Computed example of a mutant assay.
Amino acid sequence: MERAGIDGFVYQGPVRVSPIGTHALYEGQARFIQLQFLSFALEDAPNLAGWRQKGMLDGEYGEAFDAFLEITGAVPSEIDDPAVALFMLILDIAINPSRGFPIQIESFENFLIDVDAGIRFVRLCQAARDEKQVLSLITEYSFTQYAEAADILTSSCGYDHPLAVIEHIVEWQEHSPVAKLMEEKRGFTYDLSNIVVRVMSSHFLAFCDDKLSRPEFFCWPGAWMTGARASQDITNLFLKHLSLFTDKADDDGIFPRAIPGVSEENAVKTLTAFYANVINYDLVRQWILSDGPFNYEFGWLTSKHSKEDMTNSTKQAFQHAFGASPDSFTYTWAEVK
């Protein structure tokens, strides 16, 4: 690609940068999920101008939405306007690229356009501007409208349809190693090798399973968790995908959540092995990137053990993984000239 002179691949050459960054996209998505929930739950909820006046769209929280309005020319006044729902769908598609993972790269020349979330967002907004019917399409927050609007947008941009991408991932479970991993997840009986990857991968696959059948919920959860659309099934779906581990109001440590069908013993065992590996990863990061002795400040994990106990157990885990104690390292500093 560099020899071909393709922009973005040439050393010190021009790089195409989106005016909207990923941070603004994620903050915009989170804020509008919150505003949807509040607007559908409150009888006297403010309109968009009211929320803006309260500062809810200041800075990064409204940056992506303002760009959407500028590009599409949409002028919604209420949170339940179809254009707002479309904005949230565009965010959903933009921050979930497909080429490289899980689908093979077909055009390396267009790879940056295919995967850069900000570029994807701008192009999808331009598609909405050109395909004006999509601006008024989403009125019911339904599966059908999600699929139809996504088809219009992705077809215009040459992107993969989000449901086709998820279906591709779900099909992996037909292969025996992945099927075995999902069986481990069901009872939290994870093989301890590469447990961080195993836990996160299995829950990603489970998430994709549910998003394939209910993409409308994951795109517009605020619209589905209150009012007429709310149901026990929706509550169960929300609870199913909560974080596995949490803290407590009176304790800064990390604890496993109570998960239906999972014994406390297995949950604690998984938590312990998971964070033991996370700490090892941090030590490896220090090993590669930091000068001087290792830092054993892991008080964020638990307040029930002293720093000395945490340091000793951390060193033991490191030695078990690499066959050498951190205490055996010799530290040298090269003179900087």
Rank of each mutant, 00 (worst) to 15 (best):
D282F: 10
E265A: 15
H203S: 12
V262Y: 04
N280E: 06
L289M: 08
W287I: 01
F294I: 09
S231H: 03
W220K: 00
S231Q: 05
G292F: 09
V268K: 14
D247R: 15
N277T: 15
Y275I: 00
A276Q: 13
K240N: 05
A228S: 11
D233P: 02
F217S: 01
A273Q: 07
N266Q: 12
G292C: 01
L283A: 01
P215H: 04
A273E: 06
N277P: 01
K269I: 02
E216K: 01
S243P: 02
S290F: 15
D291C: 00
N266D: 12
P221Y: 05
F238V: 01
P221V: 08
D251S: 13
P221M: 04
D252V: 13
I279Q: 05
G292A: 03
F217K: 00
N277W: 09
A249F: 13
Q232R: 09
K269P: 00
C208W: 08
I288H: 04
D247V: 10
F218N: 02
I234N: 07
T246L: 10
I259R: 15
T270A: 09
D210A: 08
S213R: 11
K240M: 04
G261E: 00
K248H: 12
A228L: 06
T235R: 10
S231C: 04
W287N: 08
G261R: 00
K269T: 12
L205M: 08
I234C: 02
N266R: 10
T270N: 03
V268N: 08
L239I: 04
F204R: 08
F238L: 11
M225S: 08
D250M: 06
H241L: 11
L212Y: 05
I259D: 05
P215M: 03
S290T: 13
S243K: 07
S290M: 11
T226R: 00
W224S: 01
V268H: 11
G253W: 09
A228R: 09
K269Y: 04
D209V: 10
L271K: 11
L271F: 04
L283F: 06
P293G: 10
S263L: 09
R214E: 06
L289S: 06
S231W: 03
G222Y: 10
D252R: 15
T270Q: 01
D209Y: 13
W287A: 07
R285A: 07
A206K: 14
S263G: 13
F294G: 05
P215E: 01
T270C: 13
K240P: 01
K211N: 03
R285H: 09
W287F: 15
V262I: 15
E264F: 14
A230D: 11
F238Q: 05
S243Y: 07
V268G: 02
A223N: 00
Y281P: 00
A223C: 06
A223D: 00
F204D: 01
V278M: 13
L212M: 02
V268P: 04
A276R: 15
H203E: 14
A228W: 06
P256T: 03
D209N: 13
T246W: 10
T235G: 05
D250N: 11
L205T: 03
P260M: 01
P215F: 08
N280W: 07
M225F: 08
D250Y: 11
L205I: 12
L239C: 07
T272D: 14
M225R: 14
D250K: 09
N266Y: 12
E264R: 15
R214M: 08
W220Y: 03
D210Y: 05
L239N: 08
A276N: 12
D250A: 07
A276K: 13
G253E: 03
